[in-house]
Computed example of a mutant assay.
Amino acid sequence: MEPNATTNEDLNLYEKAENYAKTSLELLKLKTVCSVADGVGSLASKIAIGIVVAFFTLFLNIGISLWIGKELGEYYYGFFIMALFYLLMVIIVVKSHHKIIKTPIGNTIISSILKETKN
């Protein structure tokens, strides 16, 4: 009788291990879906906000360019001045892109990943 008892206990242990593995895999799938959904939702909202900000910036720049041009006597002067302003902005961003763009985005991604693994 003892060999049967051991075999039944082994089968029971095997079934428990199999159920644990299936449950762990299902939990991993659900966590992955949750993370992907959170990331896609966040990205979609940021894209929508970016589009609105881009239109606002576009129309604001056109208005400022026309106003500067009117004050200087020729409308195209205002557009040249605004273009020069943005050229200076591009030079500043290119010179310091690592500090003002790359590092903060990398830190945000890392903190997001570490926050997800803590839960």
Rank of each mutant, 00 (worst) to 15 (best):
F80N: 07
M82G: 08
S112W: 05
T7I: 10
K102L: 02
T108E: 15
T103K: 13
V94L: 15
Y20T: 00
K95P: 00
E2Y: 06
E2S: 13
N12F: 04
T32Q: 11
L114G: 00
A21C: 06
G73Q: 07
I110C: 04
F55L: 15
F79Q: 00
N119A: 13
F55E: 12
Y20C: 00
L60K: 11
A48N: 10
F55M: 15
I51M: 11
G69F: 00
G106L: 10
A17D: 09
S45M: 10
L72Y: 14
L114T: 04
V33C: 01
V40C: 02
M89W: 14
V36I: 15
A5V: 03
V94W: 09
E18Y: 11
T7M: 02
D10I: 12
V52A: 15
L28S: 12
I68W: 02
K99M: 02
L43N: 15
I92F: 11
M89N: 10
L66K: 02
E18C: 07
T6P: 00
I105W: 07
I91F: 09
K95R: 10
L87G: 07
V90E: 12
I100A: 00
E9T: 06
K46D: 08
L25R: 14
S42K: 09
K70R: 07
L30N: 13
P104F: 10
Y14N: 06
Y86W: 12
G69Y: 03
A5I: 00
I110F: 01
G73R: 03
I109M: 13
N8K: 05
V52E: 14
I51H: 09
N107P: 00
F59G: 02
Y20I: 02
G50E: 03
L27D: 14
W67S: 11
G41V: 04
L88Y: 08
L13T: 14
H98T: 14
S35F: 15
V53C: 04
K102A: 06
F85A: 03
I105P: 04
T23W: 05
F55H: 09
E116A: 09
K29P: 03
I64L: 15
T117D: 11
L43C: 11
L43T: 13
K99G: 07
F59M: 09
L72E: 12
K31H: 03
A5D: 05
I92E: 09
G78R: 00
L72H: 12
